[in-house]
């Protein structure tokens, strides 16, 4: 099954990004495909390479980058939501790209399921 994902909350403050990541990783392990994760609302804050969590904690941003590298997951950050929050191309972690909301709608059209993680 092709599963699209939307993440609506930032890292660490909220579990949404963790849950979305664990769901995506498990879905891929089980043989499904996750072609795209779309980051919206405060979810755009998952994409910045400036993040420096304590060493004994998980690195939410790097985990997404690794998933993109290993499984070709397209990590898309909403441009409008990103601009409001100071997310620009200069600070994107590997695997992320900035694009429009059309990418979210497209994932909804193309995927068998669109799963949202947020409040």
């Amino acid at each position: 099954m092709k599963i699209g994902i939307m993440v609506s909350e930032g890292p660490y403050n909220h579990q949404a990004s963790d849950s979305a990541y664990l769901f995506a990783r498990t879905a891929i392990e089980k043989g499904h495909s996750v072609p795209r994760v779309f980051f919206y609302h405060d979810g755009v804050n998952n994409s910045t390479k400036l993040t420096q969590p304590p060493q004994d904690d998980r690195n939410v941003v790097n985990r997404w980058s690794k998933l993109a590298e290993e499984h070709g997951v397209d990590l898309v950050v909403c441009i409008a939501a990103g601009m409001r929050r100071g997310i620009t191309d200069d600070i994107l972690a590997p695997g992320f790209r900035i694009s429009g909301l059309g990418q979210l709608v497209e994932a909804g059209i193309q995927c068998d399921r669109l799963v949202t993680f947020g409040d």
Partner: peptide, 20 residues
């Protein structure tokens, strides 16, 4: 890039889904 991504690049023209 998977086949899926090639499909997505085409934008899914003509497909109408019920979005709520």
């Amino acid at each position: 890039m998977s086949d899926m991504m090639d499909d997505m690049d085409e934008g899914g023209e003509g497909v109408v889904k019920k979005f709520m």
